[in-house]
Simulated scan of single mutants.
Amino acid sequence: MTTYNGQATLITESGAEISVVASLRNQQTAIDGWSGTLTMPSAARTPELLNLLKGRLLLSTGREAGFDRPNTSDWMGSPAGSFRINIVGNDGDVPF
């Protein structure tokens, strides 16, 4: 599979679990990896998520993977009523 679009759980470094909609894709580069966006309601926009630099993502398939968030100001382009962040896989295996 080269993409995943669906429900997932974002797990922060503090252990908080947030329900998100994940839109992920495989990166076809010399070093395979994955990246994408996580979208949640704007009410989820807490200081912890605004400053989130890394975390874990648990997909509805039961697979889990780590990610980095390269830019903490990425949420500023979120659609109205949503909080969207960009992530890049950081532990090698594509979880989908």
Rank of each mutant, 00 (worst) to 15 (best):
M1N: 06
T2R: 05
T2K: 13
T2P: 02
Y4C: 07
Y4N: 00
A8S: 03
T9N: 07
T9G: 00
I11P: 00
S14M: 01
E17L: 00
S19Q: 10
S19E: 12
V20A: 02
S23V: 09
S23D: 15
L24H: 01
L24S: 13
L24N: 10
R25K: 14
R25W: 12
N26M: 06
Q28M: 11
Q28F: 14
T29I: 07
A30K: 15
I31M: 12
G33L: 05
S35W: 03
S35N: 03
S35T: 03
T37P: 04
T37V: 12
P41W: 14
T46S: 15
N51S: 12
N51E: 13
L52K: 08
K54C: 07
G55S: 08
G55Y: 01
L57G: 00
L57T: 00
L59M: 06
G62C: 04
E64K: 12
E64N: 13
E64A: 04
A65I: 02
G66L: 06
S73V: 13
S73W: 07
D74Q: 06
D74I: 05
D74H: 05
D74T: 08
W75G: 11
M76D: 04
M76R: 14
S78F: 07
S78E: 10
A80M: 05
R84Y: 04
I85S: 13
V88W: 15
D91H: 10
D91R: 15
V94S: 14
F96T: 02
F96K: 03
